[in-house]
């Protein structure tokens, strides 16, 4: 399959790669299909989520455990049901990164993680009712704290 994209030109992808968000993501409820694109060199913490529906819509996401080693939450029942999750280990968690001009000030939204069922590629952004997790958690300074 192919789609036009703003940053990746004409992007070819396999149907099995597409993440399906039945509810879209917050603020983009009509965008239900995203293509994950990894660092071409592999092994990275960041990846792209490119909308398969809108060429200009792309997000950078990251592994939240990289900025907070003890990040944890109970997967809400609404997510379990929507994703048809059978086991916690089938879930992959990503968090949306906001990248200002100064890269050192990028933040990651730990309050609203994206959960993906890796067995069927269904995905959902959820809201955690947990004040420990910030919508704008600094990425770079947490690296320094982690030493």
């Amino acid at each position: 399959m192919k789609t036009e994209t703003r940053f990746f030109g004409e992007l070819e992808y396999g149907e099995s790669e597409v993440l399906y968000f039945p509810a879209g993501i917050f603020g983009f409820e009509d965008c239900k299909n995203f293509i994950p694109i990894d660092n071409p060199e592999g092994g990275g913490v960041f990846k792209w989520l490119q909308s398969a529906d809108r060429p200009e819509l792309a997000f950078v996401v990251m592994n939240p455990f990289f900025v907070m080693a003890d990040y944890e939450f109970d997967i809400p029942e609404s997510v379990v049901k929507t994703l048809q999750l059978e086991k916690p280990e089938d879930a992959l968690v990503l968090a949306v990164v906001k990248i200002p001009d100064n890269l050192n000030k990028m933040t990651v939204n730990l309050r609203a993680p994206i959960v993906i069922n890796t067995t069927n590629n269904r995905a959902m952004q959820t809201v955690l009712e947990d004040d420990r997790y910030n919508l704008k958690h600094p990425v770079v300074s947490s690296m320094q704290d982690a030493g």
Binding site: F7, I25, F26, G27, F28, W48, L57, A58, F59, V60, V96, V97, K98, I99, N109, R111, A112, Q125, V127, L135, K136
Partner: peptide, 12 residues
């Protein structure tokens, strides 16, 4: 609403 806004601002 804050999360919707955060996502809008996170669009690359």
């Amino acid at each position: 609403e804050a999360i919707q806004q955060e996502n809008r601002e996170a669009v690359v």
